[in-house]
């Protein structure tokens, strides 16, 4: 805290009236996420089938692994065949691909983007860096284990994993969703304090509310 742009302040409007501005309260929702109950039986199975066959990926290249996402979507590998499509905004996406190492600075953006996605949401972590830090394991500036900060559904090992490995990973994710095990969003809501604690340990300049849409 202690940054001017997030502090409460009074602004004078063009008419001369004072207006109270509290950026953290005005621009964000700070209500903690709630765990959502799934529908029952065949309806949930049908919904899970639709979710698994329509994976909308948040187009956010977080590390060097993002370079493998392009050939994945272009003619050689063409992931569109399998219902995988890009979405430009976290609101509309259901899969977050963490492509490679996460620096502390990026982690902050990743957390915000992840929280803006709607339940159910899935995380695919790509590359060794997300599993144990990989070649950056002793770096001062990157995190080592991604699932300390958000629930991960599928890890794809490799440095870098090729598009074939990514396709196999997405296939695995589809199986997980169809079996009803893709409940990362609920897991995040239930263990919210633990995840938040871990995030705050790493991110020193925490200038956002605890939970932001």
């Amino acid at each position: 805290m202690g940054k001017e742009y997030i502090e409460k302040r009074t602004v004078i409007s063009p008419e001369g009236n004072p207006i109270e501005v509290d950026p953290l309260k005005d621009y964000f929702c700070d209500a903690a996420p709630k765990s959502c109950k799934s529908a029952s039986g065949i309806i949930e199975k049908f919904a899970n089938w639709a979710r698994s066959e329509s994976l909308w990926v948040l187009g956010f290249g977080t590390g060097c692994g993002a370079i493998e996402m392009r050939p994945l979507m272009t003619p050689r590998f063409d992931a569109y065949r399998f219902g995988i499509q890009w979405r430009p905004t976290p609101r509309q996406a259901s899969v977050f691909v963490i492509s490679g190492y996460l620096s502390v600075k990026t982690l902050k953006r990743v957390v915000r983007s992840y929280e803006q996605m709607q339940n159910p949401k899935f995380v695919v972590a790509l590359g060794s860096c997300t599993i144990n830090g990989g070649m950056y394991w002793d770096s001062y500036n990157t995190i080592n284990r991604l699932d300390h900060y958000m629930p991960v559904d599928v890890y794809i090992a490799g440095c870098m994993p090729r598009p074939e490995a990514l396709l196999a990973g997405f296939d695995k994710l589809k199986h997980i969703i169809r079996e009803g095990r893709g409940e990362g969003a609920n897991k995040y809501a239930e263990n919210f304090d633990w995840y938040k604690g871990n995030q705050k340990k790493i991110i020193k300049d925490w200038d956002m509310p605890d939970y932001n849409w």
């Binding site: 799934s38 909308w56 709607q118």
Partner: peptide
């Protein structure tokens, strides 16, 4: 499928 998926999201803001 995209349509069904979007209607079966559990949360909205």
């Amino acid at each position: 499928i995209d349509l069904i998926k979007n209607y079966t999201f559990r949360t909205r803001i």
